[in-house]
């Protein structure tokens, strides 16, 4: 999906990087915890959907070669973060929708999750099942 179509679908605006509106993203990862992004995303060009607007979000997107960052819940990054993203060539978009609805609309439009194979995140303790 092109970033321009994604913005149209969600009613999102380009905070910076509108010149990359024709860029394609096919995989998305939605999270507020950055270590999660670092653990689970392996491919390049992934769309990051997050409610976090700290400078670290853009740095993670940069080192992971992500396609774009989409801020949800009406969150807006600081000017310093926007300028950093512009310099690093990472498009930033902002939507007022919540993360659930954003994921839902993009999923139904054909976007698929970024996944990593063979990464065990479970606690060593076994499953605790409720009594039936």
């Amino acid at each position: 999906m092109k970033l321009a179509d994604l913005a149209g679908l969600l009613g999102a605006e380009f905070v910076t990087g509108a010149e990359h509106a024709e860029r394609e993203v096919t995989r998305a990862f939605a999270a507020d915890l950055l270590s999660d992004v670092l653990a689970m995303v392996q491919e390049e060009g992934v769309l990051l959907i997050t409610g976090m607007t700290t400078p670290q979000v853009v740095r993670v997107a940069e080192v992971m070669n992500m396609g774009a960052v989409l801020f949800v819940r009406g969150k807006y990054p600081t000017q310093a973060t926007v300028e950093y993203a512009a310099g690093a060539g990472i498009p930033l978009l902002a939507a007022s929708r919540d993360m659930y609805e954003t994921c839902g609309l993009l999923y139904q439009a054909g976007l698929r999750p970024a996944k990593r194979k063979g990464f065990r995140l479970d606690l060593p303790s076994g499953p605790a099942r409720p009594a039936a």
Partner: peptide, 13 residues
């Protein structure tokens, strides 16, 4: 076992 994006997407669908 699916990431949040997939669970949210399927629930929404």
């Amino acid at each position: 076992s699916e990431p949040a994006f997939e669970v949210a997407g399927r629930l929404h669908r």
